[in-house]
Amino acid sequence: MHSPKAVGRQAAARKYDIITALGTYALARGKHDHRLVLRLLTLITARYNWQRDELAVGQREIARMWSVDERTVKREMAKLRGMGWLVVKRQGARGRVSEYSINFVRLLDDTRDDWAKVGPDYDHRMKGEPAPEQGAEVVPLPVRGAVPAPEAGGGSAWDLARAILHQEDAANYGSWFHRLRAGERVGGRLTLVAPSRFHAAYVRSHFTVRLLNVCRSVDDSITQVFVTE
């Protein structure tokens, strides 16, 4: 499994993965679990500090956010602690609210059985396994008009690889590959630069193996392809 915390260069994509795991888990269960997880998701998106792993919210504020009374808040927070998803970092006292951390290892372990429902790419990514070769299950985002074949005259590894990618799969080339530009090359590591953080995260998740294979087919000294924004 990948690092359970949303940290580093892929933090934004990792947050979405965690929220997806929680949502899929909740939707597969009864209304009580469904509501409990929805309440936790609301706390995470509204008040959780990802960098400090800290959730510090008073019961009164939570009650207002959940549209319930404080007794319900106590009961639901106790359930989340009992599940091992919330851990008390500092107990509230003398006007201070309790501070919690989120046990992502336990949370993700509990939601593991539902990952495959999202799709094989997500399941493999969450388990830290290489993504399967993408086929019909991946639907490229639409682009306006056909993207013409790239010029391979530059002769660089990426110029040649782009031409191959266009020839083999014009749809994904138009959606994801043609806007990647060659960045720094250090030893066997080739860096490709995407136009946005989302674009980079999507390509890393779905096409890293494919990009490496195509780049190695034109330059076998390339041992790693990294996509950044």
Rank of each mutant, 00 (worst) to 15 (best):
L55D: 00
A56I: 06
A56W: 02
V57Q: 13
V57C: 09
G58I: 09
Q59M: 03
Q59T: 03
Q59W: 10
Q59V: 10
R60N: 15
R60K: 15
R60Q: 14
E61K: 07
E61S: 08
A63R: 04
A63L: 05
R64Y: 15
R64P: 15
R64C: 13
M65Q: 05
M65V: 01
M65K: 02
W66V: 04
W66Y: 01
W66L: 03
S67F: 13
S67P: 15
S67I: 13
S67K: 11
V68L: 14
D69E: 14
D69Y: 15
E70G: 12
E70R: 14
E70D: 15
R71V: 11
V73Q: 04
K74G: 12
K74D: 15
K74S: 15
R75M: 02
R75E: 09
R75I: 07
R75F: 12
R75P: 10
E76G: 10
E76Y: 13
E76V: 03
E76L: 09
E76K: 01
E76F: 12
M77D: 05
K79N: 09
L80A: 11
L80R: 08
R81Y: 02
G82P: 10
M83I: 07
M83G: 02
M83A: 03
M83K: 08
M83S: 00
G84K: 12
G84T: 01
G84Y: 09
G84F: 12
G84E: 06
L86N: 07
L86G: 04
L86P: 13
L86Q: 06
V87K: 00
R90P: 14
R90E: 11
R90H: 10
Q91A: 11
Q91C: 06
Q91N: 10
G92V: 05
G92L: 10
G92I: 12
A93K: 05
A93M: 14
G95F: 09
R96F: 07
R96P: 06
V97Y: 14
V97P: 15
S98R: 08
Y100Q: 00
S101I: 03
S101N: 08
S101C: 05
I102S: 07
N103S: 01
N103M: 03
N103P: 09
N103Y: 05
F104I: 01
F104P: 02
F104S: 04
V105C: 08
V105N: 14
L107V: 10
L108N: 00
L108A: 06
L108E: 00
L108I: 05
D110G: 02
R112C: 03
D113T: 09
D113A: 11
D114M: 08
D114H: 14
D114V: 14
W115H: 11
W115R: 06
A116V: 10
K117L: 13
K117M: 05
G119Q: 03
P120G: 01
P120Q: 00
D121N: 00
D121Q: 01
D121W: 06
D121F: 07
D121T: 13
Y122E: 07
Y122F: 15
D123M: 08
D123G: 01
D123C: 07
H124F: 06
H124I: 02
H124C: 05
R125I: 05
R125Q: 09
R125Y: 11
M126L: 03
K127I: 03
K127V: 03
K127R: 08
G128L: 00
G128V: 05
E129Q: 06
A131K: 05
A131E: 02
A131I: 04
P132Y: 01
P132S: 02
E133H: 00
Q134D: 07
Q134S: 11
